[in-house]
């Protein structure tokens, strides 16, 4: 697995933490440990997505700052098997 594939896989893992913890917090809004956990991984996910978008291709449109070619349109589509 190359660096690109590894980073994309790690983003998926960290994002899953946020999805699952976010749902838990919807019904447990005063759980301080869960809030700290969420805040911690939220920062990490933002950094990883920025790094991935700069090195490879933008995962979100707001990270698609482009030069000569519009980078968002050139990025691979998830169903093609790019998500390892």
């Amino acid at each position: 697995m190359g660096n690109k594939e590894q980073l994309l896989k790690d983003i998926g893992i960290v994002d899953f933490v946020l999805v699952d913890m976010g749902l838990y917090l919807d019904t447990h809004p005063f759980d301080r440990n869960a809030i700290e956990y969420f805040n911690h991984y939220s920062k990490i996910k933002n950094q990883m997505e920025k790094e991935f978008s700069m090195k490879y291709y933008p995962l979100r449109k707001d990270l698609a700052e482009s030069g000569k070619e519009w980078r968002w349109g050139a990025a691979p589509l998830p169903w093609e098997g790019a998500c390892v």
Partner: peptide, 12 residues
């Protein structure tokens, strides 16, 4: 909504 260009879980 905003879209992320990746799957929630890998499919290969």
């Amino acid at each position: 909504w905003s879209y992320e260009k990746r799957l929630q879980f890998p499919v290969n």
